[in-house]
Amino acid sequence: MTLNNNKVYVTTIGEGEPIVFLHGGPGSEHRFFLPYVKPLAAKYKLVLYDQRGCGKSDPIADNQYSMEEEVRTLELLRKELELEQINLFGESWGSMLALLYATSYPEKVNKIFLTAAIGMSATGFKAFEQELLKKMSFKDKAKLFLLDKKMQRGKATIENILDILDPYYVFSKDTLRNKVRYNMNSTVNHVIGEDIKKQYYLTEKAHKLLDIPIMVAQGSHDILPPEKIHSLLVKYIPHARLMEIKNCGHWTVVEKPNEINSLAFQFFARDK
Rank of each mutant, 00 (worst) to 15 (best):
N261F: 00
S262L: 09
M243E: 13
K198M: 08
Y236I: 09
M151E: 09
Y44D: 04
L263D: 04
E15Q: 14
A206W: 06
A98C: 01
L81T: 02
A116L: 09
S66L: 05
K197D: 02
N4R: 12
A264Y: 00
M1Y: 11
R270P: 00
A206V: 10
V8M: 11
G249K: 08
I260C: 03
I214M: 14
G249N: 08
L40G: 01
H207E: 14
V37S: 06
L176Q: 05
M215L: 15
K155H: 11
K228C: 07
L232Y: 12
D58S: 15
Y36G: 00
F33N: 00
E17P: 04
V71Y: 01
L48G: 07
I223K: 10
I192N: 02
A122C: 08
L224Q: 11
F89C: 08
L3H: 03
A206S: 15
Q51H: 06
E15A: 14
I196P: 05
M184E: 03
R241H: 10
A116P: 03
K246L: 13
Q199G: 10
K45F: 10
R72L: 09
F113D: 06
L22Y: 01
K149A: 15
K173C: 03
K208I: 11
E129I: 11
D62E: 14
N183P: 00
A217R: 04
H30F: 13
A98G: 05
T12M: 10
H250G: 06
N4E: 14
D50R: 04
K149H: 05
G90L: 10
K139F: 12
I212M: 14
L144K: 10
D62S: 11
S186V: 13
L144G: 04
D222N: 15
T2K: 13
F32V: 07
P39R: 02
N261V: 02
G53D: 09
P18E: 11
A116R: 01
M215C: 12
R181K: 15
D58T: 12
F267R: 04
V253K: 00
Q130P: 03
T157Y: 02
Q64C: 09
E159P: 00
